[in-house]
């Protein structure tokens, strides 16, 4: 079953290193993400998973190493330029637009697909109105797909935690990305909602989405991922399928006292 649809590396990470004062959060890390696969990054707290995500997304500058997206170096590009190339993400601690409506949050996700300029917007030429209606319709359809349509007009900050997680995912999808970075999408969700999130991710992948996933929920990781990268202290200690990783001695010892690696 778990075979990615296409081959070819969408993301290539080479010798990536990130040092903060005193801590080497990510240490000479190399790996690849194939187009069409779900790749998981796991590891104990502080292993460097979020730092890795932030370097891929352009929020944190690597101390050393290279990141290639679709064959081209992106490690010098600012965050927004990487989004433009097709990388979208969700955040471990939510970064939603609390004071804007749920619908507007998703519409911001459509920003890159819009053409309106400051000048054309000030003058409200007809194409701007048409673009607004199209963006609203697309955003509304996404909300319907994720069961948030009834909340469209509410401030996003008034949503329940689980709904905010779903909203952030919908917003990222509004960009129509080629690579989706999900930082702990199930963290803090009750069982049923976490399962639903897993199902959503699986569906997205079936439709062709490449996903890089950080998650502590092992059941979710083991059942979703084509490939798993295990980090500890910023270094790779194992990489492979769920079966391979589960039996790896170093993985077992890294997780000793953390949580059982069983599906």
């Amino acid at each position: 079953m778990n075979t990615p649809r296409s081959t070819g590396d969408l993301l290539e990470v080479e010798g990536l290193t990130c040092r903060f004062a005193g801590v080497t959060a990510v240490d000479d890390l190399s790996f690849r993400v194939k187009a069409g696969e779900i790749k998981a990054v796991i590891g104990p707290n502080g292993a460097g998973k979020s730092t890795l995500f932030n370097m891929i997304a352009g929020v944190t500058r690597p101390t050393d190493g290279a990141i290639k997206f679709d064959g081209a170096r992106i490690d010098r590009l600012p965050t927004h330029a990487r989004a433009r190339r097709g990388i979208a993400r969700t955040f471990q601690n939510l970064q939603i637009f609390c004071e804007m409506s749920v619908l507007e949050n998703v519409m911001v996700g459509r920003h890159l697909r819009g053409r309106a300029t400051t000048l054309s917007a000030l003058l409200h030429i007809p194409s701007v109105g048409a673009e607004e209606r199209a963006m609203e319709a697309t955003a509304m359809a996404l909300l319907e797909r994720f069961g948030l349509a009834a909340k469209a007009g509410l401030p996003a900050g008034s949503l329940a935690f689980g709904q905010m997680k779903v909203l952030e995912l919908a917003r990222a999808l509004a960009c129509e990305p080629r690579l989706l970075l999900l930082d702990e999408p199930a963290a803090g969700l009750p069982h049923a909602e976490a399962d639903k999130m897993a199902e959503t991710i699986r569906d997205l992948n079936r439709d062709g989405m490449t996903v890089l996933l950080v998650e502590h929920n092992m059941r979710m990781v083991m059942s979703l991922s084509h490939d798993i990268l295990v980090l500890n202290n910023g270094r790779r200690i194992a990489e492979g399928t769920a079966e391979e990783v589960r039996r790896h001695p170093e993985v077992l010892s890294a997780y000793l006292g953390e949580e059982a690696v069983d599906a």
Binding site: V59, H80, Q95, F97, G109, R171, C175
Partner: peptide, 13 residues
């Protein structure tokens, strides 16, 4: 509202 969130969606803040 949220500069980091905006940048992640392709907005040049």
């Amino acid at each position: 509202t949220n500069e980091l969130g905006a940048q992640s969606l392709g907005i040049d803040s």
